[in-house]
Design a protein around this nucleic acid. Structure first.
Length: 264
DNA sequence: ATGTCTTTTTCAAAAAGA
């Protein structure tokens, strides 16, 4: 049976992390990859190296911050949009959407929102509202869709090693969690939670206080599936080995395996 | 408050974001 693996990976700097990316692509061979936090403008994006590894790629970079890309093994992703609708004045590179391998993929990098409260948290919630509106239109379209990326939301207290020292953080605020829940209530399936309901795996361990060594992680990278894709869900997981490599990103690649039906 | 890492400005050390 054919299987489609879709992964999301906050790479935290594509230039310094390119060897890690190529090693991961070689070993795990995901079919579709969403990257966030490129931290490079369009001209510095290493498209040639990625194509040499066998992937078609589209990207939207930005100097210093943000930046998103979509990779597809063996073909060019068909770009659908380069920004989240709803605010023409928003110039941050945080959303990219494409069709590849028979599915629509939204690659998103939701604002962190710290410090909270403040303008950055307001921006986070406003961005979330735009995502909720766009996600609704994607569901209405009836297409098979996955919304994958760094949501910068810890959905519940079971998705963090210990919420005590994070209570004031934007990632745990009730407003952030309520927005995430509203997405799920539209009909999206949280793939990692679906496959690991008793203890969903962490996807992020910050660089401070030996958090990786202590497995003091958070689950903030999510793959949301539209209903028809949720029916095809086989498995979901985290490539923890990537986080243990030297000079690793603070996130690990997070993936979902879908049963690939014959599509006309 | 702190911890660490990547980026930019500008070529060293510091600031900002996460």
């Amino acid at each position: 049976m054919a299987k489609l693996r879709i992964a999301t990976f906050n790479i935290n700097g594509i230039q310094s992390r390119l060897p890690a990316l190529l090693a991961w692509l070689q070993r795990e061979a995901p079919d579709i990859v969403c990257l966030q936090e490129l931290k490079a403008d369009d001209r510095k994006f290493p498209a040639d190296d990625i194509r040499a590894a066998g992937y078609g790629v589209i990207w939207r970079g930005q100097t210093s911050w943000n930046g998103v890309a979509i990779l597809a093994r063996g073909l060019e992703p068909l770009e659908i949009r380069r920004e989240l609708p709803g605010d023409p004045a928003d110039s941050q590179s945080r959303y990219l959407e494409a069709a590849a391998h028979g599915v629509i993929v939204g690659c998103l990098y939701l604002p962190n929102g710290n410090p909270q409260p403040g303008p950055k948290f307001d921006y986070k919630l406003a961005w979330f509202e735009r995502l909720i509106a766009h996600a609704d239109s994607l569901l209405t379209s009836g297409h098979p869709v996955v919304l994958a990326g760094d949501y910068n939301v810890v959905p519940t207290d079971r998705d963090i090693y210990n919420p005590r020292s994070w209570r004031k953080d934007a990632l745990l605020q009730p407003e952030s969690r309520a927005c995430y829940q509203r997405l799920l209530d539209q009909g999206w399936t949280d793939a990692l939670l679906q496959c690991h309901p008793e203890q969903p795996p962490f996807t992020f361990w910050d660089y401070f206080r030996q958090h990786w060594q202590r497995d003091a992680g958070l689950r903030i990278d999510h793959l949301l599936l539209s209903p028809q894709l949720a029916d095809d869900l086989l498995d979901a997981g985290v490539d923890r080995w990537v986080r243990g490599e030297p000079r690793a990103s603070d996130h690990a690649p997070t993936w979902v395996d879908l049963r690939q039906r014959a599509r006309p």
